[in-house]
């Protein structure tokens, strides 16, 4: 296991002296991540994601529980772990602000004591795939956010870490930059070189990169499964959207349909159904028997819906 936690717990003492209270940020998290996995770590703001990541990287000691990362005790072996870990914080930079991007990479090579040949090879690959060449000689402070993030990801990978931790790597990026980063990360992970743990609020990141999702809320794991499995458990209804030739009243009473939503004065209707009750084909046939169809589309439950359902069902009473 690359990451192994059992009953991981972290409390904070907050408030003014005399009126202190204890806040539990992480409340007994069990998390096992095997080499090569790509895990999406999700949760609303304040769910305990950052606290967990701080503990994984050794800059925060757990209040209780067991924790091993790359077979090391993160707090005790922080420096040793730093050689095996690549970390990207979307909100912070590990590059040298005043210097051309290229020089940050040279420095990181020295700091991680990477053999020059191996460094050259990895750097060339990142330059190539992430398209760094055009701004390698530009000082980091002058880079656009998208360019800088590509630099950050490169910086985190140059020492060939076993585990890459990405804390909101796509925050603030435009669609093209996001896509480019995702494709690259997916490739790196698929090549089996590095295990990926990703926190994000951008669910498209997760959809593209992660085969497995761990959702936490109020410091506990509320779901840990593949995206497909979570979708069928929490995703609720698929939707059949039918466009009609002529306006019609609500298409009530179809077998397996949970709800009907009428739009465009009855020209378009949305029929929510569960795959457990009926198939899209059967439903289309049933609709076609009643009205003239112009077009049909089947809408999968979005990952947003899945997550929203998860958060909502676990909200405190």
């Amino acid at each position: 296991m690359i990451v192994e936690t059992r009953g991981l717990r972290r409390e904070f003492r907050v408030g003014r002296i005399g009126r202190r209270r204890t806040v539990v940020a992480v409340d007994g998290i069990d998390l096992n991540i095997a080499p090569g996995e790509a895990v999406g770590f999700l949760g609303p703001n304040g769910a305990g994601k950052s606290t967990t990541i701080k503990m994984l990287t050794g800059i925060l000691v757990p209040t209780a529980g067991e924790l091993r990362v790359c077979d090391l005790d993160p707090v005790r072996s922080r420096r040793e772990l730093a050689r095996r870990l690549g970390v990207v914080f979307g909100q912070r930079s590990q590059l040298w602000w005043d210097l051309p991007l290229r020089e940050s990479f040279t420095l990181l090579r020295a700091i991680h004591r990477v053999e020059p040949g191996a460094h050259r090879e990895r750097l060339d690959r990142c330059i190539d795939v992430l398209g760094l060449a055009e701004f390698l000689d530009v000082p980091v402070r002058q880079l656009s956010l998208g360019q800088r993030m590509r630099g950050e990801v490169t910086a985190a990978l140059l020492h060939a870490p076993d585990l890459l931790v990405l804390d909101e790597p796509t925050v603030g990026l435009d669609l093209v930059s996001k896509e480019r980063l995702r494709v690259f990360l997916q490739e790196v992970n698929a090549a089996g070189e590095v295990t990926v743990l990703l926190t994000t609020h951008d669910l498209a990141d997760v959809e593209r990169l992660c085969r497995r999702l761990v959702v936490i809320d109020h410091g506990t794991v509320v779901a840990d499964d593949s995206l497909t499995a979570l979708r069928s458990t929490f995703g609720g209804a698929r939707e059949l959207v039918v466009e009609l030739v002529a306006p019609a009243g609500p298409l009530d009473g179809l077998p397996g349909v949970r709800s009907v939503c009428v739009e465009a004065d009855g020209l378009r209707q949305r029929l929510a159904f569960s795959p457990a009750d009926t198939t899209a084909a059967a439903l289309i046939a049933a609709v076609a028997a009643r009205v003239d169809l112009r077009d049909v589309t089947v809408v999968e439950p979005s990952i947003e819906d899945v997550i929203r359902t998860l958060y909502a069902t676990r909200a405190p009473s």
Partner: peptide, 22 residues
């Protein structure tokens, strides 16, 4: 073979960081 200590490179970087603000 591991390369040598990172600190000389950090000395150079300290110099370079200033030299960009002539």
């Amino acid at each position: 073979m591991l390369s040598a200590s990172p600190y000389p490179a950090l000395v150079r970087a300290g110099y370079r960081r200033r030299s960009v603000y002539l």
